[in-house]
Design a protein around this nucleic acid. Sequence first.
DNA 1: CTGTTAGCGCGTTCAA
DNA 2: TTGAACGCGCTAACAG
Lengths: 336, 336
Amino acid sequence: MVQKPVTAHDIAKHLGVSQSTISRVFTPGASVSEDTKKRVLEAAELLGYRPNLLARSLITKKTNMIGLVMGDIDNPFYPEVLSKLSGELKQRGYNVLLLSSENDNLQSEELSPFLAYNIEGLIVTDVLLSSSVVTHLTELDMPMVLFNRYHPSSHGHTVCCDNVDGGYRIGEYLIQSGHRRLAFIAGNPNTSTSQDREKGFREALTKYGHNLIIDHGGYTYEGGFEAASRLLTSVEPPDGIFCANDIMALGAMDAARKIGVHIPDDVSIIGFDDIKPASWAGYALTTWTQPVEQMIQAAIDLLLASIEEKGQMQQQGVSQWIKGQLVERETVKHRK
Amino acid sequence: MVQKPVTAHDIAKHLGVSQSTISRVFTPGASVSEDTKKRVLEAAELLGYRPNLLARSLITKKTNMIGLVMGDIDNPFYPEVLSKLSGELKQRGYNVLLLSSENDNLQSEELSPFLAYNIEGLIVTDVLLSSSVVTHLTELDMPMVLFNRYHPSSHGHTVCCDNVDGGYRIGEYLIQSGHRRLAFIAGNPNTSTSQDREKGFREALTKYGHNLIIDHGGYTYEGGFEAASRLLTSVEPPDGIFCANDIMALGAMDAARKIGVHIPDDVSIIGFDDIKPASWAGYALTTWTQPVEQMIQAAIDLLLASIEEKGQMQQQGVSQWIKGQLVERETVKHRK
DNA sequence: CTGTTAGCGCGTTCAA
DNA sequence: TTGAACGCGCTAACAG
């Protein structure tokens, strides 16, 4: 059986009306009589007609497609973001065209074919944009929001967990609960998330006159495991470790257990993200929760506003920093 | 600054040639002289021209978009699939339009707006299709492949890990390593994955004359935790538990530890999927690996073949069952 | 090799 | 309220 795509024209002559009439029935706010509207809808149902969105887009310049760029999704935090973002966009009448990039620095060549689909906006997560990409997007005046990333550029909005604040308050929390030797396991060193969490943490320690031990775990379980192993077997091991994300914290916990260092009696461990496994009985990790729902709402609000106002005036990049919250479980001891 | 989309016409009159010439330059296999081709490409670069894929699709009927339907992605197995699928499709010249469905039984109303984008094929994973959806897709003659799901229908291809085989061999493995009282923690009871893994497992036990204890964990960590708690505190606790996926197995492990049941000395635990956390030092779960790369290749091969042959002949649904492999780590004891 | 012409399926004028 | 005509940006014939 050969496919026969039924067009507005088909159902027009089936009913003996003009093609425009069909179009009007499917155009909200067009004037059609109730009677013909009903007849058209019935015929459409019967023949299996649906307006061709591509043809429509050609005229209206609205594709209702949003491009979503995601990086490596080993971190369970991002699938959750992806799912909720996609669901919320669908509810607002948009669909998601996905671009999952292997390399964490997105190049123009990778983005270009993507843009040719006339997406109306772009959401970028967990990936860096090369500056050539940013200028490209700026020239195109493409509405964009960076999710948990930012870029030193005037173009595009930013929605970010307030990582500096989180790091600072985690530092304060550890100090006030009596920790003396604090370490930070950094993630990918050229991501703003890791940099900012470190920055806030450092500020807190400085304020209270503590030193900071730094190691690196590259945002992976194995990296966290090894960094913690190094830290805990050093001559003066820390009594508290803040890991730049949960995955590394879980690795750090397993490293401590392997070495025979007890959590939280010998060392406290705290993470960032509050991913699912953090709440598992096997870990019960004390961590920092990002208000994902709220961040997603903010991102979509900004993006859609940007799309609707497009061309009306000079866009100004908006940055929203949303504060997270401590989730106390069982990996931090009050040492006082 | 207002956006000005540059069209083939623009660069045509900029160069004093016809618009078709521009088109030909961007159409592989069209005949253009090297000279004009070079001039056109230069001008295109200069003015920032890219062919509008939507307009092109309207004529060629090729959108190069594949619809990807995903269900709940709490299971870390699926983000990995998503990422690899998307990457591989991109490499083959296709883009992914995403539909992540909340409810695990996809309805026509949810799918319809999605189909209006003229996607060329559909990949469905981790979600059930209502029969109305299937008949709808059949009428549309939409190329489709179900990934790790199947549906009793002639339409569409299926690529699946051979779950029956996996369950059977896991059963054999546990029996041959000396286990006597075996339990199965089922996942979502109306998924073929859980049913088939149970079926194979049961066959093996029957063959060797063992009984089977069954409990349910709904494919979640918490579910696995609770099911294992029940099993291990019963009057005659099992000495080996096969969990229908890894997430539940991890929950089961944590439950055993909490109760004070030792793994693997008191009870062996084995999972299915080989997700990342299964290899973590904290778990070292013995499990069953699905050959994801191979499955993805098969799925894409089938889908693209189906797309290219469309209309040429009656499509016959192909089912590929790909066998997995045991991954021995530290949660199964040889009791003989 | 290149220009001309005719649509792809639809939204949107302009008259009636 | 409806129909006729036009064009969105492009590819695909057909001539030359």
